[in-house]
Nucleic acid binder design. Sequence first.
DNA 1: TCTGGGGTCCTAGGACCC
DNA 2: TCTGGGGTCCTAGGACCC
Length: 429
Amino acid sequence: MGNFSSTDQEALPEWNGPAILLVDLDAFFASVEQLDHPDWRGKPVIVGGDPTKRGVVSTASYEARKFGVHSAMPSSTAARLCPDAIWTHGRHDRYKEMSQKVMEILLGYSPHLIQVSIDEAFLDVSPTRVNRTHPVIVAQQIQCDIDALGVTCSIGLGTSKPVSKIASDQDKPHGLTVVYPGHEREFLFPLPTKVMSGIGPVAQKQLKEYGIRTLQEVAEADQAVLKKVFGKNATMMRNRALGIDSALRDEPEPVKSVSNEISVAESVDTRHDIEALIATMAHKVGRRLRKKGLEGTTLHLKIRYENLKIRTCQRKIANLGTNELVWLPQLYDMLDEIWSPGVLVRLVGVGVSGFDPEAVQEQLFGLVDEQQPTSPLLTEPEKKAALLDARDLIADKFGERSLQFGHEFTSLKQTTNSSSKNPGDYLDR
DNA sequence: TCTGGGGTCCTAGGACCC
DNA sequence: TCTGGGGTCCTAGGACCC
């Protein structure tokens, strides 16, 4: 194992076995911002929520990380640690576009790609009869190609996903960490449990209570202990600690749920305000479902209180459809089950799950037929559907904020911070 | 100035059926 | 009428990931 700068294939030890890469884009969102704003390069850049509201850091550039800023840190803390940082809200479409360019590069090296997230992917580059290129050479070429896009990546190379994933974290940014076949345990065993995917703060603490601190201790732990900590995943987690993984599956997983939530800068405690937030979130979800042609069976409502406690309510509903106007009475009813008037609420979320993977439908409602005026004979649900179609069309043409329903608008005005001129401003990230 | 948003998966308990 | 057990569906909550 080690870091390589060599590009001489002859000098490399032979690679016997599968070769899995984990390609992780370095400080991705911040790097894209520095690429697009040349005067931001070399300076601390933070992509995230507003420090004066309830934002957190999404990504900090490496210059900002020197001040101790990191992902998921409250923006207010980050602003204190790094007062001169350049702040920006994310431009998710732009990041997606860059991400796609990266994925195209990877697909040029192997068709066996699993995209884990917008900035991370596994790639099977095992040598074949047709392509004898050494995996280390492939990794170096990929790093060059991605450099040429104007962003950088760190790569872990090993014989399985758990090994390459952990390897990729060893040297950032722009690192390449290689674990040769047969050296998996030597690499994994001394590492602390938290480096492994699936071991978070809770599992780490539980393991510690059994005296388990390293991956070697996980690998050698009593099965009953692992069962207590990991439940039905006990065997899988032990295998991971040994560097053993199930095969690389490259079919993308179907979408299981769609949700939107918002944390408000100032908590709200009236039914009117909370219902308005529910309506706004429901609208976002409905619009996404209509765009994707997805229809679910279960409606979800989520509330977070001032003390950060979360309450949820979910209901399976026949013919849920994609029309949020139809969901609203249900959601308002569900609100009663988890909230009492006067209690301060800082977050409201709405979601839909229970999609039939077999039946990804065409859009449920066609676009509004401009030739034909809305018929007075339409049923109430049909009228609501036509209204939504018209609204989607206008949003597509003129932007999301060009039209809002009255129940959203009035309340947004009330919950909006006084410094904001547009009632919808605080919804933007 | 504490602690986002979008997801997946697991567990436990209750209702209901056989 | 009382009883147990298994299976399935549904809901609430929470751990974890990026």
